[in-house]
């Protein structure tokens, strides 16, 4: 850790101030979710403490969003994201294992093609993929929603990197004990890779929770709509109910905010380790 160790009050004050500036939109979203709809704009001009702290608190927005299809959309998002994380970890870690541990011809080329393909953000290819998935009748299905999230270039890269660091002697000993490749993967490599798997899980989680263009195309039916799409359509209504919009925004945001706050260390490590650290 090469941080500046002298404590400076001025610097501390600037840090807190910057953090507050970044947090203002989220704070405003949160308090607006808890105030009566007609009060959201009333206290903005002139700006006063009441712009940022509700005079009257209400839960009517938070309870109101569950009457329509929004509850279903939140459920869809949670379900799709969980399945994506589990399947994505399975696919990315087995691929990373082969690419890091098993010696086979053209290993580097396979690694390169795979990571580069997966690094192309999925949205770029969404339009032709939509045609293919429609042909396969995967419109308005969970399969269609989940599939694009399971192959992630950063996750493969990160896990391979981690597996390369596990000493060769361990797998040689396991071979002597008669373990096969799968045993080595499952009982030697995975138990040692908790932090790396958690980092990869976070990458997969953030990707799928964020997804917007793909779900918009592949799953327009109300039963399969995800929260990120539902909120946008909510706000596009002719006479939107801002209380409900903020309440829905809060519910969608609070889940990744909690996950990230708790696991920030793993997320930052995962981000940094793909960023050309020396």
């Amino acid at each position: 850790m090469n941080s500046d160790k002298r404590f400076s009050y001025a610097r501390f004050a600037v840090i807190v101030l910057v953090a507050i500036v970044f947090f203002v939109p989220l704070w405003w979203m949160t308090v607006s979710a808890f105030r009566p709809t007609d009060a959201i704009f009333r206290y903005l001009s002139p700006l006063s403490p009441w712009s940022f702290f509700p005079r009257t608190w209400t839960l009517e927005n938070i309870t109101g969003i569950w009457y329509g299809n929004f509850g279903r959309a939140i459920f869809n998002s949670i379900f799709i994201t969980l399945v994506t994380v589990v399947l994505g970890l399975a696919i990315c870690s087995t691929a990373a294992f082969a690419l890091a541990v098993i010696e086979f011809p053209f290993r580097k080329s396979v690694f390169m093609v795979m990571v580069i393909s997966f690094l192309i953000p999925f949205d770029a290819i969404a339009v032709p993929l939509y045609g293919i998935m429609r042909m396969m009748n995967l419109q308005n299905t969970y399969t269609g929603l989940i599939l694009p999230g399971i192959g992630n270039g950063l996750a493969v890269f990160l896990l391979r990197q981690f597996f390369l660091g596990i000493p060769k002697e361990l797998r040689e000993a396991a071979f002597v004990d008669g373990m096969g490749w799968f045993g080595i993967y499952w009982r030697v490599y995975l138990p040692l890779s908790g932090p790396a798997m958690l980092s990869a899980a976070l990458i997969l989680f953030v990707f799928q929770w964020q997804a917007y263009l793909w779900p918009l195309l592949i799953a327009p039916a109300p039963d399969y709509k995800v929260a990120a799409v539902a909120i946008a359509q909510f706000s596009a209504e002719y006479n939107p109910n801002f209380g409900l919009i903020f309440a829905a925004s809060l519910v969608i945001s609070v889940i990744p905010m909690i996950v990230l706050t708790v696991l920030q260390r793993y997320y930052s490590t995962s981000v940094a380790s793909t960023g050309g650290k020396e």
């Binding site: 990120a228 946008a232 969608i252 945001s253 990744p256 990230l260």
Partner: peptide
Amino acid sequence: LPVAIPQSV
């Protein structure tokens, strides 16, 4: 935090 929130939100 903002990066974890869906861009649509």
